[in-house]
């Protein structure tokens, strides 16, 4: 039996480690130049800066980690301290063309409400999330009967901030229940490489480590 992984108890509990370079391009490619963008859980603002520099977007962010907020504002980015579960309610309807939630959905208290708010304040939403349906996750649970530990799901169950993991199937199912149209989607591995099976949801749900989905209100 495998020993429990060493955990640095002093490390702050963070949302899943962000490979911003991956999301940056996958998400950036879905956003029209010159649009108004709100990035929820924007971290140090790498996506905001990317969208401003390369696409001329009016991009702003909300981030819950104060050190990241300070870092972003120090770099001249429009970022405010806030909590996706609470602060989205304070934005008016249709204030943005796109609202982005990058690898944060699985960590919020009320994912369905956050999605609702996103598509209220934005015409479109871009959501990326790690896929709990990936074969390695399934295999570990099946073989060992223990919560999976993978490069994507890398925190033990008792201290993970990821309280609402879902699979690609689950997410599509929620979108159709809520009446959101999927305008574009893709599955990718951790390095952001799009796989050839990306057109087939069943295969994507098995082999995709993360998904990026562009939604709109129906």
């Amino acid at each position: 039996m495998q020993d429990l992984p060493e955990v640095d108890a002093s490390a702050p509990v963070r949302f899943v480690a962000k490979n911003m370079r991956v999301d940056l391009h996958l998400i950036g490619d879905m956003i029209a130049p010159g649009s108004r963008v709100l990035d929820i859980g924007c971290g140090d603002g790498a996506l905001i800066e990317h969208l401003y520099r390369t696409r001329g977007c009016d991009a702003r962010g909300i981030e819950i980690d104060m050190a990241e907020v300070t870092h972003a504002v120090t770099h001249g980015l429009a970022v405010m301290h806030g909590d996706a579960d609470v602060d989205l309610a304070h934005y008016p309807d249709g204030a943005f063309d796109y609202v982005v939630l990058s690898r944060t959905l699985q960590a919020v208290e009320r994912p369905r409400e956050v999605l609702r708010q996103m598509l209220r304040i934005g015409a479109r939403a871009v959501v990326s999330f790690p896929n709990f349906g990936h074969w390695l996750v399934r295999w570990q649970l099946l073989r060992r009967g223990r919560m999976p530990m993978t490069p994507t799901w890398d925190r033990p169950w008792y201290e993970t901030p990821n309280i609402h993991p879902c699979t690609i199937h689950d997410f599509f199912d929620l979108c159709s229940r809520e009446g959101y149209g999927v305008e574009q989607w893709l599955a990718a591995d951790e390095a952001g490489r799009r796989a050839p099976w990306r057109r087939y949801p069943r295969l994507a749900n098995l082999f995709g480590e993360q998904a990026v989905v562009l939604l709109h209100r129906d």
Binding site: D58, R60, M66, V69, L77, A78, V79, M80, H81, Y91
Partner: peptide, 8 residues
């Protein structure tokens, strides 16, 4: 819908 940064 103003452009706002906010830091504590």
């Amino acid at each position: 819908a103003a452009n706002v940064s906010f830091v504590e």
